[in-house]
């Protein structure tokens, strides 16, 4: 039997699973439920459980007393003490101050990186100038260098020279625009800004910045939002450099540094530490719940583009 025959035979035998896939009227609940057909739900649910469990556990420990958890078997359900533990945590370190600092850092960097990234991305994607390709290759190359590690010591010396040690700007300024932001926005602009629009704008008498304002910015909103989310998350969670340069000055701590100090000082008080950790994640979880779809799309698009 030839291959073609085989295919024919298969087709004749009725709808293949592949055809089912395309069929819009397919309704799985008409079939009887069986584990053999749905085992993948079990696997995925277990994966989901493992993904979410640490958050639950944070809350369990953070809402019980240490004695409830430091016993065998430990309590594995939430208790009544979360408010108390969280209050203790917020008094143990300058918690709200650190949250505010983190908002300032992440917010400033996000706005700046998206703006300058879009500007540079516009130039790279839509303008002809000498060195365009070479400079873009250079930008991509910079993304490969682990700058934070390689430059850690001179960066510290530089901040020392500027008098910025222990100040938020030491974390903000080096991140104002990154190679990643330029690269990302270049890709976004190349695909979502149409040349005809630019041409029309030019005919209307726009200079390049006018085109940037009236044509580019309105067309890249969603791509820029994804970049903004990633930048915000990255800065929110950044640890090594803030630890080095802000570590001394408690007033300038970001939330990660505050958390670290909390766990280093109150390590025996798990209820306090985990309640504080849980609190520190609430802003992120809110952002995530609102933007989850865009974030997932961003990760997946990034994969295809990358």
């Amino acid at each position: 039997m030839t291959n073609v025959d085989a295919v024919k035979a298969q087709s004749a035998a009725g709808p293949t699973p592949g055809n089912e896939r395309q069929a819009p009227t397919f309704k799985p609940n008409k079939r009887r439920f069986s584990w053999a057909n749905n085992w993948h739900y079990l696997v995925l649910t277990v994966a989901l459980f493992i993904s979410v469990f640490p958050f639950y556990w944070m809350f369990v420990v953070g809402s019980n007393t240490n004695a409830d958890v430091a016993q065998v078997p430990p309590r594995i359900t939430p208790g009544p003490n979360f408010i108390e533990n969280a209050t203790n945590a917020m008094n143990a370190v300058p918690f709200l101050r650190s949250l505010l600092n983190t908002f300032i850092v992440a917010g400033t960097v996000t706005v700046s990186a998206v703006f300058f990234g879009t500007l540079a991305g516009f130039a790279f994607a839509k303008m002809q100038f000498r060195g365009n390709k070479a400079l873009m290759a250079f930008v991509i190359a910079t993304m490969m260098i682990p700058l934070q590690q390689l430059g850690l010591i001179p960066l510290y010396m530089l901040m020392d020279r500027f008098g910025w040690v222990g100040q938020l700007r030491a974390v903000i300024v080096p991140a104002l625009v990154t190679g990643f932001a330029v690269f990302w926005m270049r890709q976004v602009i190349a695909t979502s800004v149409h040349d005809e629009l630019l041409e029309a704008g030019r005919v209307d008498g726009c200079a390049t910045f006018g085109l940037f304002r009236h044509v580019v910015i309105p067309s890249v909103r969603s791509g820029a939002a994804v970049l903004g989310m990633f930048t915000f998350l990255f800065m929110w969670n950044d640890f090594l450099w803030p630890l080095v340069v802000l570590g001394g000055n408690q007033d300038a701590h970001t939330i990660q540094i505050a958390l670290r100090n909390m766990s280093q000082t109150y390590y025996a008080d798990y209820a306090l530490v985990l309640a504080g950790t849980f609190m520190s994640l609430i802003p992120l979880i809110i952002v995530f719940v609102i933007f989850a779809r865009q974030m997932i799309a961003g990760v997946m698009e990034g994969a295809v583009k990358g």
């Binding site: 510290y156 222990g166 570590g247 100090n261 000082t265």
Partner: peptide, 24 residues
């Protein structure tokens, strides 16, 4: 007075770093 209380090792690490930067 603003008191900043840090774990023993971290306190001294941070202090050295700040002093070296002409701060503290």
């Amino acid at each position: 007075v603003e008191i900043q209380s840090t774990e023993h090792g971290d306190h001294h690490d941070a202090l050295f770093t700040e002093l070296a930067a002409g701060g503290g």
